[in-house]
């Protein structure tokens, strides 16, 4: 019991240390960035200010003090939920982000779940036909498809389904006047999700295949068969359960990869999510916004990485045993 508390505290400390370092990097980078920070607070008004007004504004905002005092102030504000103002949207950053966050979570979440399931099934299928024709064809196809950049795949799908056939919408989250319509929403999600799934699930099916093959080549499979079990049952009761923990942790560690993909796809489909937001804020030099998006994404990634590690350490007794063996 006590060790569990110690473990949790340790993990929490690592988590906060990670976010702390990340926030420093992001903050310093945003201060190095060219451009007058006043602009990001006052927008066009900043240009009309007189020199004394500017100085007063600087003092009020604390821009005259050193970087680390600015950082401490920024962290203090951030802790109260105040991340500053977005120059482009002329609104609180937190407000701008909270409006888009749900959209990204939906697109990313659906794609992630689909990739997770499909990769497992495909990997299983390939392992079942190890080195035979279906497996070889699928592996080659997989290498090919994973070489197609997401943006290009998006373009081709838009060209085929939206422009030429006109059956699916080529961008946005809703048709005008349909906001809140679930079915309309779903139609808009089809193409982005398809791109994300197609360009990622091959990439993950391959490790699944290899992990499964490593299992099916182990002697315990022979032992199970020698008991009188069928190959299918061995796969289902021994091999698949054995790879699930490592698979989950592998997928958790892969969150940044899929997140990057989501951001690109959002930008191509002008889907109102964080990715499009990040792209726009980078274009218009809206550092306050970009900083928070980076921080938010980084936090999500650190969290998923740690989940992956924790799963690896806790669930899989063989791995923790190996660790113990190393220590000896």
């Amino acid at each position: 019991m006590k060790s569990a508390v110690v473990y949790a505290v340790k993990k929490l400390l690592i988590f906060f240390a990670g976010i702390f370092v990340l926030s420093i990097i992001v903050f310093v980078m945003s201060r190095i960035a060219p451009g007058d920070p006043l602009v990001s607070y006052y927008g066009d008004r900043a240009e009309k200010m007189s020199a004394s007004e500017k100085a007063a504004a600087r003092e009020r905002l604390g821009l005259d003090s050193s970087v680390y005092i600015q950082y401490i102030r920024w962290v203090g504000n951030a802790a109260r939920g105040n991340f500053g103002i977005s120059y482009k949207y002329r609104q609180d950053v937190s407000e701008v982000i909270s409006r888009r966050l749900g959209n990204t979570l939906m697109l990313g979440g659906i794609s992630f779940a689909l990739v997770f399931i499909l990769a497992l099934l495909l990997g299983w299928f390939c392992a079942r036909f190890e080195d035979r024709l279906p497996d070889r064809i699928l592996c080659k196809t997989g290498t090919f498809v994973s070489c197609i950049p997401e943006f290009w795949l998006s373009l081709v799908l838009i060209f085929v389904f939206a422009v030429t056939l006109g059956v699916l919408p080529g961008g946005g989250a809703y048709d005008p006047g349909h906001s809140g319509d679930a079915l309309n929403r779903l139609r808009h999600l089809v193409l982005p999700v398809a791109v994300l799934v197609m360009s990622h699930f091959w990439y993950y099916a391959y490790p699944v295949r290899n992990m499964l093959l490593e299992q099916t080549h182990a002697d315990y499979v022979l032992t199970a068969k020698a008991k009188g079990m069928s190959s299918g049952a061995v796969m289902l009761k021994h091999c698949i359960p054995n790879i699930i923990p490592s698979y989950i942790s592998f997928m958790a560690v892969s969150v940044p990869h899929i997140l990057s993909g989501t951001y690109i796809v959002e930008a191509v489909f002008s889907y109102p999510g964080l990715g499009t937001l990040a792209y726009e804020s980078a274009r218009y030099g809206d550092y306050n916004l970009l900083m928070v998006i980076c921080l938010l994404t980084g936090t999500a990634v650190i969290l998923s990485n740690m989940t992956g590690q924790a799963i690896m350490e806790k669930i899989n007794p063989a791995i923790s045993a190996q660790k113990r063996g190393e220590n000896l």
Binding site: G18, V21, V26, M29, I32, P34, P256, A278, L290
Partner: peptide, 24 residues
């Protein structure tokens, strides 16, 4: 190595966006 881990946690596209925005 922890620092490398943290840097890895920023999706590279975002990092590139950020840096490119800074470099102009």
């Amino acid at each position: 190595m922890r620092l490398a881990d943290i840097l890895l946690s920023i999706p590279s596209l975002l990092a590139v966006l950020f840096l490119q925005a800074i470099l102009g």
